[in-house]
Design a protein around this nucleic acid. Structure first.
Lengths: 169, 169
DNA sequence: TGCGCTTGGTTACATCTGAAACTTTCTTGC
DNA sequence: GCAAGAAAGTTTCAGATGTAACCAAGCGCA
């Protein structure tokens, strides 16, 4: 690639950024593009092998480690819209991968959990997911990966905070 | 948050990953969620202040630093589909932010560049973008930020490589 | 020159997505 | 208890997005 001199030179104020906008070095852009590439890769794999969409995959991932849960709870765990969760759940229900039982504590919601078939699929889905993750970070020290994840959390937090601040302002 | 012991303990094989799938610690998920949060924040800001969609914003960002360019070139620079570029360009053309001139070298394509109005908007858009970036990474050393960006590039590259490998296999 | 192939760009269509309105059930304050 | 408001879930609708088909202009090779 082209040389980028003085990028790390002392910046004028407290803003640790460039003064000129170069899309290619723009963090939100880089983040978006990277996320897209990774998402596409994994989405394709899951749709091909299991016929699962990303939202459906997320539901299975969560319910595989903790169930039963209501749709509401799933929204929180997967950071997805309630409509998205609803549709994903409907798909899985139709395929008998999910079971929906009445919630004695609250007549509005239901308790969702994997069926035996769902568990069986989960048993294939989870290792594949881990395999993809491993391939993506191949050759990188685990400690580095952890640091990166921390970064992502931090960034997300910052974005949400700014978003809330903007909304109420 | 909850404690996560032994995460950094020696892993069995060369795979630097967990053995159990926990969505919350799953890198592709974290990446997607973080990217979403950041994208939403910025998208909202741009639609509110300038009436620009993300694709439109990207076109302006690229054309502001380098023009004229064909749509084809813009696809490469923004990592967007040609249809997406086409629609974004159409929107900007209608608002007279973009100019489209014939390309003497190739009758199929056109040379796109910002109009004076477009330049004027760019002059507002770019600093705001940098401001958002600065706010997101506030309190983090610039060197760290660079490292993170490198990470993102690397991850993207890995994803694309795996995707290509999968497609041809 | 001309026939086939490629490429830039556009259109059509099918899908996905989220905001908003709506229904039902629960909670709260009186 | 019972109205009023909140919350879980569903449906509807409009906008965004991408794939595939399509058109027109260039390229290449005989």
């Amino acid at each position: 690639m082209s040389s980028r001199p003085f990028i790390l030179s002392p910046t004028p104020a407290s803003l640790g950024a460039q003064h000129r906008l170069r899309l290619d070095d723009y963090l939100p852009y880089r983040l978006s593009v990277a996320a897209n590439a990774v998402s596409q890769l994994i989405a394709r794999a899951y749709v091909d092998r299991f016929g699962l969409t990303v939202p459906q995959w997320r539901l299975m991932a969560v319910l595989g480690e903790d169930s039963p849960l209501t749709q509401q709870a799933l929204c929180g765990r997967t950071v997805m819209d309630k409509v998205t969760v609803m549709r994903a759940a409907r798909g899985l229900l139709q395929r008998r991968l999910l079971r929906r039982q009445p919630n004695s504590a609250d007549g509005r919601s239901h308790r969702l959990s994997l069926t035996v078939t769902g568990e069986r699929m989960y048993a294939e889905v989870a290792p594949l997911a881990l395999k993809y993750e491993a391939m993506l970070v191949a050759g990188i020290e685990p400690l580095e990966v952890r640091r990166f994840e921390q970064w992502l959390r931090r960034l997300q937090q910052a974005a949400v905070a700014l978003s809330d601040a903007g909304a109420t302002r």
